[in-house]
Amino acid sequence: MIRLTNIRDFWSGIVLGLLGLVECIGAFQMPFGSLDQPDDGFMPLWVGAVMLVLSALLTLRSLGQGPVSVTEPPFWLESKSPIRIACILGAMSVYLIVFEGIGFALATFVLLVFLLRTIDPVPWRFSLLMGLSVTAFCVLLFQVWLQVQLPMGWLSGWRMGPWIF
């Protein structure tokens, strides 16, 4: 009886196959041209088709008659792993949302302290000190040395003083 021998490969094949299908559908909506004048959709169609074939191969390969693969390591290495990953991704997403609103310096400081305190907790005093010094270093590197216009947000009315600029 045919059964799933590698669940990860099966789902990877399905997801990437869907992306290949999207690429093909998108390519069909563009002019294909002719062989002597290939147009916008020419190459995307080929790439999409290759993705479809390869993902089908991956999916089919994951089906077999043997037992379910037992050699695979567990998906999460520790029980707290998913919480750590969710915390990091969540913090990064919030950072992006507030980045322009509250400004680079404040957002960066909060992000650093949050990550230092939550993933593998560092003492408060050290977290605050490190957050402050890394933020200051970034301001010097990006704003002063590289002249990058980072959003100042809530601190926009506050002059950083002639000792920096």
């Binding site: 230092l116 593998d120 970034c138």
Partner: peptide, 24 residues
């Protein structure tokens, strides 16, 4: 320890990309 390094790496990744095109 890596717990001190990774927040800095992540922050540089994000700010570094912003510095190219000022694009969120």
């Amino acid at each position: 320890p890596y717990r001190l390094l990774f927040p800095v790496i992540l922050m540089f990744c994000l700010v570094g990309v912003y510095a190219i095109n000022y694009s969120i």
